[in-house]
């Protein structure tokens, strides 16, 4: 049997997202994108967004990483579609709080993302869970377009 904390980390929903990531791939016509690397392990993720009238109308990602980083990117994409840029930035803050074991603001629905709260028991894996989120944040801030990841 798995140790309890491992159970918390590798929940079925996380394994499902990592094996069948939603919104994975390059996004034609993206208005924003950014790439993040974790130089410690060589993992990388690119996030592509279409933003219209300050609303995220589409989001995809390309990731090369562990189960935690892929699942996190997959869940992030599901969560962000249809959100305003301001809502997305607030969700970013709340998600970082969740992963670091701090309090999440009341009234914020993290849905599937809640399953990643187990990461807080694994400090060496926090970077994995937050990699795609930092890419999203950078994409929203810079607004630049990255070329397609080969």
């Amino acid at each position: 049997m798995m140790a309890g904390e491992l159970n918390d980390l590798y929940q079925d929903i996380i394994l499902d997202h990592s094996k069948n990531p939603r919104n994975s791939g390059y996004l034609e016509g993206a208005t924003h994108s950014a790439r993040e690397n974790n130089p410690l392990c060589g993992d990388r993720v690119s996030v592509y967004l279409t933003v219209q009238n300050a609303e995220i109308t589409d989001l995809t990602f390309e990731a090369r990483g562990c189960a935690i980083s892929v699942a996190s990117a997959s869940m992030m994409g599901q969560m962000m579609k249809g959100k305003s840029v301001a809502e997305a930035q607030n969700l970013f803050k709340q998600f970082i709080a969740l992963i670091n074991g701090s309090d999440v603001a009341e009234g914020v629905e993290l849905k599937d993302l809640q399953s990643l709260s187990g990461v807080k028991q694994f400090p060496t894996r926090v970077k994995c869970a937050t990699l795609s989120w930092h890419a999203l944040q950078h994409a929203l801030e810079s607004g630049g377009i990255e070329s397609k990841t080969s």
Partner: peptide, 8 residues
């Protein structure tokens, strides 16, 4: 991914 192997 090797990270997941390493953690387990």
């Amino acid at each position: 991914h090797p990270h997941d192997i390493g953690t387990i």
